[in-house]
Write a protein that binds this DNA or RNA. Sequence first.
DNA 1: GACCGTACTCGTACAGCGTAAGAATGTCAA
DNA 2: TTGACATTCTTACGCTGTACGAGTACGGTC
Lengths: 219, 219
Amino acid sequence: MAVQTEPSRRPRSPMSRERVLRAAVRLADEAGIESLTMRRLAKELGVEAMTLYYYVANKDEILGGIVDVVASEIEAPADGPDWKELRKSAISAHEVLMRHRWAASLMLSSRHPRLGHMEAVLGCLRRAGFSAEMTHHGYHALESHIMGFTLWLAGMALDAEKLPDLAAEFLRELPRQEFPHVAEHIETHFVKPTEYTGSEFEFGLDLILDGLERIREES
Amino acid sequence: MAVQTEPSRRPRSPMSRERVLRAAVRLADEAGIESLTMRRLAKELGVEAMTLYYYVANKDEILGGIVDVVASEIEAPADGPDWKELRKSAISAHEVLMRHRWAASLMLSSRHPRLGHMEAVLGCLRRAGFSAEMTHHGYHALESHIMGFTLWLAGMALDAEKLPDLAAEFLRELPRQEFPHVAEHIETHFVKPTEYTGSEFEFGLDLILDGLERIREES
DNA sequence: GACCGTACTCGTACAGCGTAAGAATGTCAA
DNA sequence: TTGACATTCTTACGCTGTACGAGTACGGTC
């Protein structure tokens, strides 16, 4: 039963569905999701396009697969009694989705639900004493914030390092008397090149969590 | 032979950029955004694909244009003193984006900001006494909820009328002891064919608005 | 009439996309 | 050696956006 296959004879590392997916994630991260084509992905793997179809039914399966890869990086809320574990989990989701800026919109349009994560979040709320009704409302409020905010920020951050310059130029051409608040917004937000620390995401998150807390205490 | 009023050579109404965009919106509404191709849109207008390029630089301009058409349907918050005008405006945005389920994700990826709406929302918060900082936070929290929730719901509602059956079958195959809360969630949400009235959207919206209110009163 | 500029529409072509069909190649067991 | 099977590649098809240039219609002017 000695494995006779000598890797030296065939320099290519063995292909696999997992290897395809990992390469797809890397390609999407580095070159954008629009660069993820069957031919380009195949070239990346040193192979022809049709070879991929031996490991994957079609491109949709690749898209679903890389969404799963990314989703598995998200930290689920712990099982303990503290329902504010959701806070950590939400921040984790935001961070992961910002590392893979193409993932959020794919995740929303994915036909296949992430049951494990959903179960963990719902259970966390339920154990904290929320009613079924309130649990569902809370779940959607949280998920909406994560997705909405992340999608917005990911759209902004397409060209992160030259954003201050872009904002400055935009500001110069903006008719200020017509859009004074927009001008103010851009100024405080973008022109000074502050590192994004997630505080904006957390503001909205805490708005929701504190609101839920209050509802829970009232009931 | 009088060829003048031959039905095959029907009198085409005059083409225009606006007519192209309106047809594009209708096509996307009726057949999905993925059906919006230059050739199909042209056929819809009784014309060849390349004709469209006389009115529009490229397809991206069409996509930007139809986003603007949809955005203009959204009711901006009124200029008055009541900052909860934002509530009406947010609900309007949600309704409009649900009428055009392809629009939300396009709007998020659009490179061109909707200054008028942004100015109205920011001004509304500012006039209510929020600090610049808080205004920006509130703006993003609201916008995130609108976009995140609408995108989620639009993804769900792809095949609205047969959703209860789908949910029932999904539920039948779901390992209940493994995902009890998910099962509960699906049951209360989908199996009974309740008309969606927007109450879920408004729950999260009010969580945010009430949270902002409290912050305003504290300061 | 003839001529011409302008506005508009279309035919053709090309590179790139996902992928169906099947041939070619490599590897192992009998 | 033969045959079965796993893996990869070649070719081709219909679709996409769109570059390029050739029509076509319709005013003026001479």
